[in-house]
Simulated assay, not measured.
Amino acid sequence: MNFNFDSPEPIYLQVAEQVEEAIFTGIYRAGEQVPSTTEMSKEFHINPATVLKGMNRLVAAGMLEKRRGLGMFVTADAEKMIREKRRAEFSQRYVAGFTSEAKKLNLSEDELIALVKQSYEAE
């Protein structure tokens, strides 16, 4: 994990995003324990309350679960939830603007699909 202390994005959000990314990429799998608040705060020199605030966002989202006396664990549906969240963000961030620009260029739906297929196959 890598935190940018000069970023305008709060550290607790960076904690949540980076743990989420680690779940999505398989570093932490369903049922596995994530590092404790104390471990993360010591390793990255972050206030424990800040780390906890970030982790609690993932608990509230249903991606992590707290087990009393044991720590926090990745939920069974966490990866699926993250994938769905990212698909929605992808659609909002990229597809909406992409289709809007295509309409301005008077591209038909078929032309747009052909361009996407062409680009997708070139990768």
Rank of each mutant, 00 (worst) to 15 (best):
16 A>P: 07
63 M>R: 14
80 K>C: 07
88 A>C: 11
35 P>G: 04
39 E>Y: 05
98 F>C: 08
79 E>F: 01
62 G>S: 10
123 E>W: 10
101 E>H: 04
64 L>W: 11
90 F>C: 07
1 M>E: 13
5 F>P: 14
88 A>R: 14
45 H>A: 14
105 L>S: 08
73 F>Y: 04
76 A>Y: 04
44 F>H: 09
64 L>M: 11
61 A>M: 13
9 E>M: 14
73 F>P: 00
17 E>H: 15
6 D>E: 12
51 V>D: 07
69 G>K: 02
100 S>A: 08
10 P>E: 11
23 I>R: 07
48 P>R: 00
118 Q>G: 14
48 P>S: 06
57 R>P: 00
95 V>D: 09
44 F>Q: 09
37 T>F: 09
78 A>E: 00
82 I>L: 05
10 P>L: 08
88 A>I: 13
71 G>R: 03
51 V>C: 09
79 E>S: 06
18 Q>A: 08
28 Y>D: 01
78 A>R: 02
23 I>Y: 09
85 K>C: 07
45 H>M: 14
79 E>H: 06
55 M>C: 03
49 A>D: 04
40 M>E: 03
72 M>R: 11
79 E>M: 03
94 Y>Q: 03
27 I>V: 14
92 Q>K: 11
60 A>N: 08
39 E>Q: 10
55 M>R: 03
109 E>V: 13
108 S>H: 07
41 S>K: 08
45 H>C: 12
60 A>Y: 04
84 E>D: 08
26 G>N: 09
58 L>Q: 09
109 E>T: 10
85 K>F: 06
74 V>H: 01
99 T>Q: 12
32 E>Y: 01
101 E>Q: 10
100 S>W: 00
111 E>F: 05
69 G>A: 09
38 T>I: 12
88 A>D: 14
4 N>G: 15
59 V>P: 06
103 K>N: 15
93 R>C: 03
38 T>D: 12
72 M>P: 04
100 S>P: 00
41 S>N: 10
109 E>L: 12
7 S>G: 15
19 V>G: 04
27 I>P: 07
7 S>D: 14
95 V>C: 06
11 I>T: 11
75 T>E: 10
